[in-house]
Design a protein around this nucleic acid. Structure first.
Lengths: 150, 150
DNA sequence: TTCTTTTTGATACGTTACTACGTAATATTG
DNA sequence: CAATATTACGTAGTAACGTATCAAAAAGAA
């Protein structure tokens, strides 16, 4: 089986899961939102908001930035997409809802490539550090810059 | 002793340490750079680049954004200041050079307040997760959103 | 259907960040 | 010291990122 076919399969998997998630939570995965999500899935990495504007615009119809940002906000609230603050870009979240794990986005400082890792050890250590510092309800997402070992 | 006096003392401490650090590394803490650093120290929290432009500009002389960005770049390279990507702002780093510790910036999602915590447990857990994911030379800085427990 | 809520479209605007280029100041070398 | 190289700063313009507002359309509820 070709890589492309695998990708295609994985893509449909993610789409179906996103669809299910929204259905279960009474969220509406409208056409625009789905197109944005699909584009992020297909890209296989982080994409900037204005890149999405370009990619989802056709000759006749150019989408407004605000349209993309609204879709991204929706997807982020749904937990389907994560914003990479260090890169001003957005990536799909591969999260199986492992509630206790910290979702770490390792970001290659040079290329911008990301690898998502879930770690309950990190979650626990961060939780402890937060508690000592007087912090609560810590976000299950964080990003760490580094570089991919080749 | 008043809080203000304590602050003043702490401020001078930080300034002196910054000065020493630059001297030791043959870096030039020029007037502009020192003013930016001092402003960040005095503010006691994260400040945006354009806020710094306003605060360091006088009636007669308005600093250009690029001047501030250059100073911030210098201070970041020197390890004196950290950029909060999630907030588009900048904070002083209270780093005693505990090389092995992860410098965690806890950021209050609502107020933007920050608390810096150093944790070698987190550093170790992140290092382990990075290694498994094929990542190297991980940044000693990360930020985590949450809220301050009152 | 009518009413209400949610979503999208269109335009404009505000903030954040950087580039290009020339000048001034500061080291470094002969 | 003078000549040169390096570093820092000033000015201007522009690119990238994100938001505000209001109107139109679509979806859901009564």
């Amino acid at each position: 089986m070709s890589t492309k076919a695998l990708r295609k399969e994985e893509e449909e998997n993610l789409l179906r899961r996103a669809d299910d998630l929204c259905r279960q939570n009474n969220l509406r995965l409208t056409p625009i939102r789905e197109r944005v999500y699909r584009e992020l899935v297909q890209s296989g990495g982080p994409v900037g908001a204005y890149d999405l504007v370009d990619r989802l615009s056709s000759e006749k119809k150019r989408l407004a930035p605000v349209t993309i940002y609204r879709a991204l906000d929706f997807l982020r609230d749904a937990g389907l997409v994560h914003r990479l603050a260090t890169q001003n870009s957005y990536v799909i979240s591969h999260g199986q809802p492992d509630v206790n794990a910290m979702k770490i986005m390792f970001v290659d400082s040079k290329t911008g490539e990301t690898i998502e890792v879930h770690s309950s050890e990190v979650a626990e250590a961060v939780r402890k550090a937060a508690e000592q510092a007087g912090f609560r309800s810590v976000s299950p997402f964080m990003e760490v810059e580094g570089e991919i070992a080749r």
